[in-house]
Design a protein around this nucleic acid. Structure first.
Lengths: 256, 256
DNA sequence: AAATTGTTTGCACGTTGTTGCACGATTACG
DNA sequence: CGTAATCGTGCAACAACGTGCAAACAATTT
C-alpha cells in the first residue's frame, strides 16, 4: 500500500517514520530498515534524532508514540503549530539532567510537552499547566512554586513565589515573553511579573527566550521595566534577517 | 481479540500492561505471560519495574492498580459518574466565601469541578490538577502549595509543602482518602502523605472525607499512621447501613 | 574543472539491555 | 504443618545499542 518512491531523502524518511508512528503508535527498527531498504543503523540514527526532538519515545527495538495528556487544550491547538515548532527547537537546547525554570504561558506549556523523556530533567514551574504537561512522564522531576495564582497569567505570582524561586538554582530559564528588544531584553505587562522573571533569571545559568513573531517588536504598550539580557533566542525560521542580525550583534545566540 | 503475531517491543509490553491494569484494575502474571508469549520471569521483571516507578502495586501472583494513577486517567471515565455524584454532595457542604484545602486525587479533582462559581471561594491545593479545574472560573481565588511533586500522588508533597500549608487557615479541608476507618480515621500509604494531610486538617475548621465504596474497608495493606478524626463523610447512597451507623456512632455526619 | 566542505551511509567494534533457565527462598492455602 | 505455587537472583546466550571510521555523494568554493 505504501509504494516507496525510488529516492527517499533522509529528512523525508524521518517524516514518514513519524507518520507511521502516529498511525500505529509504535515502530520497530528492524521493520523500518527492511521497508526503507537501509541499514538498521540509519533507522536507529533517525529514531535517536526524533527522540532528541521530543517527537517520540525511544525504546529497545524501536520507538513508541509520546503519551500525551492533553484533553483540555483543544482550542490552543489552533495556533499551536508554530509554538510547537519553536518549542521543539528550544527543547533541543536542554541538556541531560538539567534543572529548568519554566514560567507560565502557552508557549512554555508547549515547551514542556516537547521536553524529551528519560533525560533526568527537573522542571521548576509556577504554572499548574506546565506541571501537568510533564508530571507522569518518565525521567521527570517536578517542583511546584507555591503562591497565589493569577488567573490571567495562569501561574503563581507574588512574593511567596519569588522567595521560593530564590531557594532554587537552575541551569536554564524559560521566562514567558510579552515583548522583547535587542538592547533592553524582555518586557512584561505587570510589576509582579517582572519581579518574578528577574528572580528566576538570576537563579539560572542561562536564559532562553522563545518569541513568536508578534513578540519581536517592542511596542509602547508595555509599561514596566525590562529584564536583564538573555543568552538564547528561539524564533521562527521566517524571521526578518535584519532583526536576527540585531540580536546576534547584541550577543544573543539565535535559534530557528 | 488482541492477536499480536507482530513483534512486541519490551517497553511497549510494559505500557500495554499498564493500560490493561487501568482497564481491569488488576493483572495476573501467568495470563500476561501466555498472552505476550514470554516467560513469567519477564512479566515479573516488568511488574517489578513498573512497581518501582510507583505505577502499580506488586502483589502475589500479579499486580494491582495504584490508587493514584498519574499518567493516563482513562479510568477517570469509568468511575467518574460515582465520583461526580459524591463531589456534588460534598460541594453542597461548602459555604459562601470559604477557604478550602483540596488535596490531590481524582475524587478531589471532581470536587473542584463541582464547586459553584461566583461564591468567592478560595481553593488552596497542592495538585496542579485541582488548580487547573478552577483556575479561570469566575469568583475563584487559587493558592498553589509549592514543593516537589510526587507523580504517583499528582501533587506536591514534602516539608516545604507542609510549611506552606501551615501558614494558611481554612474553613474546610478535603484530604484525599486511601482508606477510612470509623474509629481511627484516615489511612494513607505514605509517611509524607500522612504528615501533609495532618497539616491541612489541623489548619482547617472542619474536615470532609469523600469515600468511594472501596475506601470504606481499612485493609491491612495500608502502612502508616492514621490521621485524626473527621467531621463529615460523603459516601454513595447504596452504602451498607451498618457501616453508616458505625460512623454516625463515632460522631461523624454522614452525607449520601 | 578541481578542490573543499558537509552530510549520509554502512561496517566493525565494544557495550548495554533483554530473555529464559536453574536454583534456593518465600508465600499462600488447605 | 506440609505442599505447591510464586518469588528473587545469578548466569549464559543473544539482540540491540552507541561510537568511531572510511567511503560515497551533494553542494559550494576556488
Amino acid at each position: 500500500m505504501n509504494a516507496t518512491p525510488e529516492t527517499t531523502l533522509p529528512r523525508e524518511r524521518q517524516q514518514l517514520i513519524l507518520e507511521r508512528l502516529g498511525r500505529d503508535g509504535k515502530v520497530v527498527a528492524a521493520d523500518l530498515a527492511h521497508e526503507f531498504r537501509v541499514s538498521e543503523d540509519s533507522i536507529r540514527r533517525d529514531l535517536r534524532d526524533l527522540a532528541s526532538q521530543g517527537l517520540c519515545r525511544r525504546v529497545y527495538g524501536g520507538a513508541l508514540l509520546m503519551q500525551h495528556v492533553a484533553p483540555l487544550d483543544e482550542r490552543h491547538r489552533e495556533r499551536s503549530e508554530l509554538k510547537r515548532a519553536l518549542a521543539r527547537v528550544a527543547a533541543g537546547l536542554v541538556g541531560e539532567g538539567q534543572i529548568l525554570f519554566v514560567d507560565a504561558g502557552s508557549t512554555n506549556t508547549a515547551l514542556a510537552k516537547a521536553l524529551p523523556d528519560n533525560r533526568g530533567l527537573t522542571v521548576v514551574t509556577n504554572a499548574p499547566d506546565v506541571a501537568l504537561a510533564v508530571l507522569g512522564r518518565p525521567g521527570f522531576e517536578v517542583i511546584l512554586l507555591g503562591g497565589r495564582v493569577d488567573a490571567r497569567i495562569g501561574g503563581a505570582i507574588g512574593s511567596r513565589t519569588v522567595r521560593h524561586a530564590q531557594d532554587i538554582r537552575a541551569d536554564l530559564c524559560f521566562p514567558g515573553v510579552c515583548a522583547i528588544d535587542p538592547e533592553r531584553g524582555l518586557w512584561t505587562y505587570d510589576e509582579e511579573e517582572t519581579v518574578f522573571k528577574q528572580a528566576i533569571i538570576e537563579a539560572s545559568g542561562e536564559t532562553v527566550a522563545i518569541a513568536t513573531p508578534d513578540k519581536l517588536v517592542a511596542s509602547a504598550t508595555h509599561h514596566t521595566a525590562p529584564v536583564t539580557a538573555i543568552a538564547h533566542l528561539v524564533v521562527s525560521a521566517d524571521t526578518d534577517a535584519a532583526v536576527v542580525a540585531r540580536y546576534r550583534a547584541a550577543g544573543v545566540a539565535v535559534h530557528m
